[in-house]
Amino acid sequence: MSTTTAAAVPEKLWSGGKSPFKVEYGKLMMWYFLMSDAFTFGAFLIAYGTTRFATNGWPNPNEVFRSYPLAGENSHAPLVFVSIMTFILIISSVTMVLAVQAGQQMKKNAVVINLLLTILGGLAFLSCQAWEWNHLFHEGAWWGRNPFMNADGTQSTTGFTNFFFTITGFHGFHVFSGVIINIVMLIMTLTDKFEKRGHYLMIEKAGLYWHFVDLVWVFVFTCFYLI
């Protein structure tokens, strides 16, 4: 009976006394921070697209990204290494969701295990990126230098390498910050900070950041490696 009356009375979200968005302040602000970060990455990617549309010819990504660790110099395996990187990031995002859910259920051990897996995934992704940067650098690519010719065999501009290193570098820095944040979360969990607080809301905020890093990679991966 009581439930039907509660449903009949319309909820007054903005009458005060509670959060109209039904989220904690810190989580709301994390959302708005991520929105601003989305604008930064969006600006980078649109600048890349604009330059690509304004340039005659562009290098073929399948010719540039065709190697993987321990492969010979003339290896031709496009998309293979980067798809591994993509799956590493997706899986680390899944373990982060599991850590958040374990936190909501106050299961400390599950939080620790899933956070550890997420950190490992982040480190694995960073190692892959470090290898790729190192490999491209030794092929002669860097800011202001582009050894790769255009897909039609003409001389290319440095636009490709400039945008590639800037955008994947900025994303890699986000991954690095995410790993640091997750390590802090792990230490706070292990020292029972959240148990004493009675909630694991901090993990949810770190989780939002980590998923955002995965989200950005979806866009970077498509824009640089696929199309």
């Binding site: 968005f21 039904k22 989220v23 995002s93 899944v94 989780g207 998923h211 995965d214 989200l215």
Partner: peptide
């Protein structure tokens, strides 16, 4: 799917 389900935005209040 990442924003809606992993980041849980789909289950938040519509105004948010």
């Amino acid at each position: 799917y990442i924003v809606g389900y992993f980041m849980h935005l789909k289950h938040e209040v519509k105004n948010l």
